[in-house]
């Protein structure tokens, strides 16, 4: 992952696995005129760890997640994702980084309604020109229990099924890092439980580093680490 990112379709590879999955050094984010969303955050998450990020609405959790995913440029500090310094990467380089190395699961699923479950799942691989994108997507959908729903469009699926498709999409390229933004926020308790198990199990199987933003305090004991954002600063809650 230390080699330079290219802007063509050549998949980028994380060359070194000994670097931390996420390393933030004095990261700050300020919106004009002077709204300090994140203040001097330092964070290192080793590979394979499952980390929860909690905090009140507006505390800066999602902004931190977006900075790690290369969706927001920090106002200050250095960000290394999977060993790659990303501060100076342009938009397309960041897109390639996400395509090959980062899976994202959202609260609102964000499936494309013009695509079937299978096509939604295969999307990251198809963007990378993967030769067996659909076959791999089928495997992934089978892994989340949607073998019989592959040709359905999102509007034909329940909320839980849609989120399982989103999980399959996030894991289809076996990314070393998964970011989840309140992935169970839109689901009932039972479905939340199932989806969470599924996420953590697949993550464990693949040794995926996972960073969850969540409001659900009942699931925190399943994470290796729990961090809390308070007014833009990061505080340790639990480390196993």
């Amino acid at each position: 992952m230390n080699n330079a990112l290219t802007t063509d379709n050549t998949p980028t590879v994380a060359a070194a696995t000994d670097t931390p999955a996420i390393h933030l050094s004095h990261v700050a984010l300020t919106f004009p005129p002077a709204v300090e969303v994140i203040k001097d955050v330092n964070l290192t998450i080793p590979r394979g760890r499952h980390v929860a990020l909690i905090g009140r609405s507006g505390s800066g959790k999602t902004s931190l997640l977006a900075i790690i995913g290369g969706l927001l440029k920090p106002s200050g500090g250095q960000v290394q994702t999977l060993g790659q310094p990303i501060n100076d990467l342009d938009e397309d380089q960041l897109a390639l980084l996400r395509r090959d190395n980062i899976g994202v699961v959202f609260q609102h699923f964000h499936l494309l309604e013009t695509m079937t479950a299978l096509e939604n799942t295969a999307l990251p691989l198809e963007l990378g020109g993967h030769p067996n994108a659909l076959a791999r997507a089928k495997e992934m959908l089978a892994a989340v229990g949607l073998t019989n729903r592959m040709s359905h469009f999102p509007a034909q699926l329940s909320g839980g099924e849609q989120q399982r498709v989103a999980i399959a999409r996030a894991f289809v390229s076996t990314p070393p890092l998964l970011l989840a933004d309140e992935p169970t926020g839109n689901l009932d308790d039972d479905t939340s439980e199932q989806v969470l198990h599924m996420l953590l199990d697949i993550g464990k199987q693949n040794n995926t580093t996972m960073l969850f933003v969540t409001h659900n305090n009942t699931i925190l004991d399943r994470f290796d680490e729990v961090w809390e954002m308070k007014n833009g600063t990061l505080h340790t809650m639990q480390v196993k």
Partner: peptide
């Protein structure tokens, strides 16, 4: 917009 954002999220470039 949302679909475009998703495509970009999973690695699609602006050129794409």
């Amino acid at each position: 917009m949302r679909a475009i954002a998703v495509i970009k999220m999973v690695g699609g470039s602006a050129a794409l």
